[in-house]
């Protein structure tokens, strides 16, 4: 098991280096630079521009900048954002709980609906339910997030329509909730304000649905195909021959084997969620890292963008690592084969 973990960790190092290189170079490929954008329409004299660039360290050769970026990472320092003058790491972790809260709700929503739907579709394959579900999930999978978000806002939030949910933010402005964990649902529960939790929950509903739609569609489809394959396996026939109930056969014998696929899919969706969060957070003015990244890119805040990308990528890599370990727990064959 230890060797298994070490091998996996060793493989992460080149991936991580690649991410830093991509994060570092892509933002610099965009036209314009931070000083120009800070100056805005007033413009800035070439001398002053060069002077400011030098203070930020952008006059040095690129390889030197990249090297100091790497050294900074090793020291846990991702630089300071120009616009807020705050350390990037701090900026990131102030906003991160909001994104985590949204992403967690979205993945729970996606799994709670997608997983059972996929199982039922596989067991009743060819039925009307199966066809309907696969149709819906194809639609959900193809749905552009920004358009889907606007549709839902019009339907649920417009005063002329259902008028059920708020449109933007994490909580109504009527409440003031002290930040303790950074998770609004928990903080609002801990606070004395009456109705704060309800407001926070109501603000989560639409973003959760919008962000969870694509993962839900993918989870449903993948669960269905994994279950279809496994329901034809010999050991499922053995389980039937033992006289077990359909619930045990499908829910325990088949599902445990299908979970390998499903967990892989859910793990991969974490990356999709963080990417999707950028659009969703922008639509719903959700103060998370997605919105922060978009703002930083438009400000050419080099340190914030490269730091943010590296942090997000690290999280995705860690989740994938976690998924690898879970394989071993679910299906011991995988662990034994490698060690």
């Amino acid at each position: 098991m230890i060797r298994f973990i070490l091998t996996k960790l060793g493989l992460l190092i080149p991936t991580f280096l690649g991410v830093t290189l991509v994060a570092f170079s892509f933002i610099r490929m965009l036209p314009g630079d931070p000083v120009e954008l800070l100056a805005g329409e007033r413009g800035v004299s070439p001398e002053r521009h060069a002077e400011l660039m030098a203070t930020l360290g952008f006059d040095k050769p690129l390889w030197e900048q990249y090297f100091s970026f790497l050294v900074g990472i090793l020291h846990g320092d991702l630089g300071t954002s120009f616009s807020s003058k705050q350390p990037v790491l701090e900026e990131f972790f102030v906003r991160f709980p909001a994104t985590i809260e949204l992403a967690t709700c979205a993945i729970i929503f996606a799994a709670l609906i997608g997983l059972p739907a996929g199982i039922v579709a596989a067991v009743k394959r060819g039925s009307a339910f199966d066809h309907t579900l696969m149709g819906i999930s194809l639609t959900g999978y193809s749905m552009p997030i920004f358009w889907w978000g606007l549709l839902l806002i019009i339907l649920f939030s417009s005063p002329d329509m259902l008028n059920l949910t708020p449109v933007s933010g994490r909580i109504s402005a009527l409440f003031w909730v002290d930040t303790q964990t950074g998770f609004m649902l928990i903080d609002s529960l801990l606070s004395d304000e009456k109705g704060a939790f309800k407001s926070a929950a109501a603000h989560l509903v639409l973003p959760t649905i919008v962000l969870g739609t694509i993962p839900m569609a993918i989870i449903a489809r993948q669960t269905r195909s994994a279950m279809l394959e496994i329901l034809g396996e010999d050991y499922v026939r053995t389980a039937k021959a033992k006289g077990l109930s359909p619930f045990r056969i499908v829910g325990i014998h088949a599902l445990r084997n299908a979970l390998i696929t499903v967990i892989t899919v859910i793990g991969l969706q974490v990356g999709v969620l963080l990417a999707g969060a950028i659009l969703t957070e922008t639509i719903f003015s959700w103060p998370g890292i997605g919105k922060w990244m978009i703002d930083s890119i438009s400000r050419r805040d080099y340190f914030a963008v490269q730091g943010g990308i590296v942090l997000i990528a690290s999280i995705v890599m860690l989740v994938n690592l976690l998924v690898d370990f879970m394989y071993g727990l679910i299906n011991p064959r995988i662990l034994h084969r490698r060690s």
Partner: peptide, 25 residues
């Protein structure tokens, strides 16, 4: 009712022992 009989009074073993047992348990 059939499930009460099979696996108990009538049972069956199969050709492929390597694939007939569930790998996860």
């Amino acid at each position: 009712e059939r499930r009460k009989i099979i696996g108990k009074d009538i049972s069956m073993i199969f050709q492929e022992p390597m694939t007939s047992l569930n790998p996860c348990f």
